[in-house]
Amino acid sequence: MNVSVVVFPGSNCDQDAVRALASFSGRPVAQVWHGDPALPAATDLVILPGGFSYGDYLRTGAMAARSPIMEAVRRHAYEGGLVLGICNGFQILTEARLLPGTLLPNKTLTFVCKPCTLRVERTDTPFTGAFRPNQVVQFPIAHHEGLFYLPEKELDELEQRGQVVFRYASPEGSVAPEASPNGSLRNIAGIVNERGNVLGLMPHPERASDPVLGERDGLLVWQSVAGWIEGGH
């Protein structure tokens, strides 16, 4: 599995993603500078990492979405390649219109960093094949703008098309609004595009990929992607 992590000025989870993926796959992970025109050949998965790209100036993700590398990321996605945006990466994907919706400031109006439980809603995407249906997993969150928003009607359509992949849930799997740490509509934590090859996720699987740090459910994401690639997709 060939992974490329894009580094924007202000990215700060790029090295975490590189380490998590290199450790999982046993292979070097490419780091792609935001000003580069192209992705390394044979890239299977592009990760847009968390952080504060361009200092979050203008709007979170707005400037990064217009970086030179994003044309190549867009092409990669059109060709069916996998793209995962984590946290700020999710925000960038919505600004780049590769994913619908927008991420608004948390209901607390503060930054929130803590462990979080999520329920997986689909196990037939490239990113979730290794999960059990409705499995509750733990990934931490760390963001100021994580409240996923879409107008009601579009939200219904998103649900009907099965694009919601992760929801904030109680440890028992209930997705009542209280289980959401940020007020996200319908507890949405992660969505895919219609084709299913682009995932935006506010929680951080790369922070839950190392037993020394306590959580390891993030490995399921990497296992899913590896399985998908090996399966010849």
């Binding site: 700060n12 989870c13 090295q15 975490d16 380490r19 998590a20 968390g50 503060t110 930054f111 929130v112 960093c113 803590k114 931490p140 760390a142 951080h204 790369e206 922070r207 990929s209 190392d210 020394v212 740090l213 306590g214």
Partner: peptide, 28 residues
């Protein structure tokens, strides 16, 4: 003091073994 420490990113760089709230913090 969780309401304070939760406003800080205590995990970035993925080396935080024990974060805020205890008698000591432990870093790899």
């Amino acid at each position: 003091k969780a309401w304070i420490s939760e406003q800080y990113d205590s995990m970035v760089q993925t080396n935080t073994v024990i974060g805020p709230g205890g008698p000591v913090s432990v870093l790899r």
